[in-house]
């Protein structure tokens, strides 16, 4: 039996100064698995995603992803680990308007030179861009791209460092159903063709059929509260 890519156990988290608290007894994500996380607003989906990728630390419990115990890593090591192992896609894409599409894709490499040779990363970025049909737009600034093109740039940025886990926070939240479906195809094609795992927070129930597994937050948290498994 192969070990899971991600394993959260007995995770407890409370927002400092706030009333929100959550508890997850167990959450596993297998390598290459596409997991959707659904639930009402404010139930903790984004918080769970942030714990999963090391943006937030749990108050208790363990978070192991790709062999690293995130809960125990020092801050600097945690950031370095995230840069190498996680690709992030945000709902509002968050491209840097001052950079060209290519420079946006290469942002992780500009933020940490230890990620590797920039020339090789640039080649990789061009390949990714070609596979997503935006190779001709690499010199353009984000404001000169359509929403769909910007989304592809954001996806390329998440994939360029060849992460093992792609975490997406409602990437189709602002899209109409057709566009959302196309974006979802793109995302799933990208991760499946590379054997990467996908953890995606979404409100869009029409997309759930495309995932390998769907986690309902109320069930997950209910099981956690009861000490059960997700």
């Amino acid at each position: 039996m192969t070990s899971p890519l991600a394993l959260l156990r007995d995770v407890r988290f409370r927002h400092r100064g706030g009333t929100f608290a959550m508890s997850v007894a167990r959450l596993e994500i297998a390598r290459g698995e596409a997991v959707a996380c659904i639930g009402p607003s404010g139930c903790g989906k984004t918080t769970l995603l942030e714990i999963l990728v090391g943006i937030r630390r749990p108050d208790a419990g363990t978070v192991e992803v790709a062999g690293a115990a995130l809960h125990a890593l020092p801050d600097a090591a945690l950031r370095a680990w995230r840069l190498r192992h996680v690709g992030l896609v945000f709902q509002d894409l968050r491209l840097l308007e001052s950079l060209s599409a290519l420079e946006n894709i290469l942002l992780p490499h500009h933020l940490d030179r230890s990620l590797g040779d920039l020339a090789a990363a640039t080649d990789r970025a061009r390949l990714l861009a070609r596979s997503m049909g935006i190779e001709a737009m690499l010199r353009r600034k984000p404001r000169r791209l359509s929403h769909g093109e910007r989304q592809r740039v954001a996806l390329c940025r998440a994939l360029v460092a060849e992460p093992v886990l792609l975490a997406a926070d409602e990437p189709t939240g602002s899209l109409d159903p057709d566009t959302a479906g196309a974006a979802m195809d793109l995302l799933l094609d990208a991760v499946r063709s590379r054997g990467q795992a996908l953890f995606m927070v979404t409100h869009d129930h029409s997309l759930l059929g495309r995932f390998d597994r769907v986690i309902e937050m109320r069930t997950l948290l209910g099981a956690g509260a009861a000490g059960g498994a997700a």
């Binding site: 370095a80 968050r94 992780p108």
Partner: peptide
């Protein structure tokens, strides 16, 4: 702030 947050989320160090 959004730009800074995205850099932090991706994994940029405070020093960077």
């Amino acid at each position: 702030r959004g730009e800074i947050l995205v850099m932090q989320a991706i994994g940029a160090s405070p020093w960077t």
